[in-house]
Amino acid sequence: MTGSIKYLSQKHWRQTGVIALVGAIYLICSWILQYNNLAGITAVPKAFAWLGTNFMPTADSMSHVPQIWTKLMQTVLLAIASTVVAAVIAIFVALLGSKVTGFNWVVQTATRGIASFFRNIPLVAWAMILLFSFKQSDFTGFLALLLMSVGYLIRAFMEIIEDEASETTLALKATGASYFQIIFQAVLPQILPSLISWVLYMIENNVRDATLVGILTGTGIGFIFDLYYKSFRFDAAGMTVLAIILVVIILEVLSNQIRKVIL
């Protein structure tokens, strides 16, 4: 009794300690960077006011809508294509690498390593590296998104397989089913909903990221935003941002609906 009370009060102090530590780290960092907290905070409303007046789309900006729309669709398609290809690659690799369906521990460890490598290089870095080889093109953006998505999806799929398919795999193994029979009759049907759910999430994510990559690779909606911005057509740039937000929200609503149906 007293033991557990003591434990709880200790836990309380630990939590307070952690919060204090986070605060201290923030203060030290802003001191090192000579970041003026007060000025930073007071600048926020001003920045929004500036955004509001300059980036507000006007009646004129409507003329840019067709162009924005075409570029936006290009970007959305790029994101979907890269995610779908990534998903196909990832499922094969995940089957080879998971503890349940995997080959042996060498392949399993290697797969984990590769997935973590692709995942931990930031997207922007991927795009910059690939720019050297493939120049400014849609393909560069596609590849950058693909590589990063593959990293994420391999990891996610392996965990899904291990969590959701280990019991049925065991049961079918016991009936004398062969490896491929187990994969197609048990593992894939069992994990399909979670798989689709992850792919949808990755598409949403990649649409946002594709915008950023587009600025670097000079394609899609990112390019056109960059163009408007640098030529001081802030209203059109604002229109572009608005269009991106709209599409991202639509995609999210759509994929939530799909999730509801399949899960």
């Binding site: 019991e167 049925t168 065991l170 049961a171 079918l172 009936t175 004398g176 089913a177 062969s178 491929f180 029979q181 994969i183 197609f184 009759q185 048990a186 049907p189 069992q190 399909l192 909903p193």
Partner: peptide
């Protein structure tokens, strides 16, 4: 340890996989 998303009869038929060729089993 059933494949929860499949139907009851599909799960019962899984017991036959050990008797089938790999391809017939893969396609159920």
């Amino acid at each position: 340890n059933l494949v929860e998303r499949l139907t009851v009869i599909e799960n019962v038929l899984h017991g036959r996989l050990g008797y089938k060729s790999t391809l017939a089993g893969v396609f159920g």
